[in-house]
Amino acid sequence: MLHWVESQSILGITLFIFGFCYVLTMVIFGAAAILSRRAVAKELKAASPVTLTPLAVILALLLAFLSSRVWTNVDRAGGYVGQEASALRQAVLLADALPPDVRNSLRESIKRHLQFIETHDWPAMGRGEANLQVIPGGLTDAMAAILSFTPAQPAQQLAQERALVAIEQALDARRDRTRLSQVQIAPVQWIVIIVLMVLILVTIAMIHIDNRTAMAATLSIFSTAVALCLVLLMIYDRPFAFGGVTMAPTTFREVAVE
């Protein structure tokens, strides 16, 4: 269910989250309105507003913790993609100093790796199915091509060493972005947020049970604020997914391989 929601557009995620929060609010308001006609309403009205403070603090801390982690992951995702693309571009440039057959083999291997990213790696990360068991053949072939000759000049030796380092950096960056594509807010964390939200809504309804206008206004304000926070978390939760605010492999398309 969560994967389906997060795979929608920003508008779709926003409508779903706000709809869910408002439906939950209306259910609690309706239940409170029914109870307000009964004798138990006076006992519920005795609930202290101070009860809201610890609940609100716990919810705020949880949202702040998750928001910090989510946006840190977004920054890391961009960094890993940039590192991998830069390393591949460096290997392409260093190929000019290598013998013609090695140069052509290296460029062809990098081109195949770029196609692998577009056709396999990125869709797999979007589905949350990317793993390190799939070895990028393009990069392994590029590494084999670099090691397949003995440098005849100091310039070739230097280019060979740096090209090998660039390919290793590309492998490390791909490994990092693959791991990051599997990171997301766990279902149990979403459940805790929803439970805390329900507890606060119920407490608000109890405090204002004898004043429906105040109860409706307060419930609406709180549910809107929480819905906004949940929308932000969900659209940024998986930077490599298909929905929300996601990254496209456009950076790799700038690695021109002639």
Rank of each mutant, 00 (worst) to 15 (best):
D141S: 12
D141P: 03
A142K: 01
A142P: 01
M143F: 07
M143V: 04
A144T: 03
A144R: 11
A145T: 10
S148W: 02
F149L: 00
T150N: 08
T150M: 07
P151W: 03
P151V: 04
A152T: 03
A152P: 00
Q153T: 15
Q153P: 00
Q153K: 15
P154F: 05
P154G: 00
P154N: 03
Q156I: 03
Q156H: 05
Q157A: 14
Q157M: 13
Q157F: 08
L158P: 00
L158N: 04
A159I: 06
A159M: 02
A159E: 12
Q160S: 03
Q160F: 03
Q160Y: 04
E161P: 01
R162M: 14
R162A: 04
R162F: 08
V165Q: 15
V165I: 14
I167F: 07
I167Q: 07
I167N: 11
E168V: 09
E168I: 06
Q169C: 06
Q169G: 06
A170P: 08
A170G: 11
A170H: 13
A170Q: 12
L171C: 00
L171H: 03
L171P: 00
L171G: 01
D172A: 14
D172V: 09
A173N: 12
A173C: 03
A173E: 01
R174H: 15
R174C: 05
R175S: 15
D176S: 15
D176W: 11
R177K: 14
R177F: 08
R177T: 02
T178L: 09
T178F: 01
T178G: 04
T178K: 00
T178Q: 11
R179L: 13
L180F: 09
L180E: 08
L180S: 10
L180C: 05
S181E: 04
Q182T: 10
V183L: 10
Q184C: 05
I185V: 13
I185P: 05
A186C: 01
A186Y: 07
P187R: 03
V188Q: 02
V188E: 13
Q189A: 07
